[in-house]
Computed example of a mutant assay.
Amino acid sequence: MVDRRVQRLHQWREFGRRRDERAVADGVVGVGVLDGRGDVPANMLDGVAGSRWSSGVPMAAGQSVTVDTGAVRSLARITMDSGGSANDYARGYQVFLSSDGVSWGSAVASGSGTGALVTVDFPAQNARYVKVVQTGASTSWWSIAEFNAYG
């Protein structure tokens, strides 16, 4: 049985949890929009709620982030927390999974965010890469303070 308790990246590494039980994001592969102000993509994986990645421009359909979980594993949930930037959550999204970062197939989930913490559940699938594509729009930037993926 897979333990589905939420674990932050820094907690996982600090306490040496078994990687086959929980999935976390190890690296950001690509970001469709880069903010030149220092809100770098790695901030969404650092375990620090006070840091973030931001688009640096208003949200628009087609913006995306792609995260490498480090290995192919069973994934069934992601969370995107905009933290202190409460209005910067994804207004609309599609989630895609891939084992190789090249072939994506159809979206495994889609929906609309309604607040700072966006939780997306989908049927468990084996994958290494997670891509979130923005489908909504807003005058706010798209920011992610913490991104997590779970099995």
Rank of each mutant, 00 (worst) to 15 (best):
R52F: 15
V29C: 05
R18H: 05
V102E: 11
V31H: 02
S98G: 04
I144P: 02
G27N: 14
V120K: 13
A42C: 14
S98R: 03
W12Q: 06
M80P: 00
A149W: 01
R18A: 06
L97S: 15
G115E: 15
E146C: 05
Q63C: 00
A25S: 08
G36N: 12
K131V: 01
G30E: 10
K131M: 03
G36K: 14
E146P: 10
M59E: 15
V57Q: 07
R19I: 10
S98V: 03
G115T: 11
G83T: 10
L9H: 13
S140V: 01
R13N: 13
N87M: 09
R128D: 08
Q94W: 10
M59D: 01
I144Y: 00
L75N: 09
S55E: 13
V118G: 04
S74P: 01
V2R: 15
L97F: 15
Y150N: 08
S55W: 10
D46W: 12
T139S: 14
A90L: 06
G111S: 14
V65C: 03
G47R: 12
A86K: 05
G136H: 00
M44W: 06
W141N: 13
A42K: 14
A149V: 15
K131N: 01
A25G: 12
V29A: 12
L97V: 11
S51E: 11
V29H: 13
V95L: 13
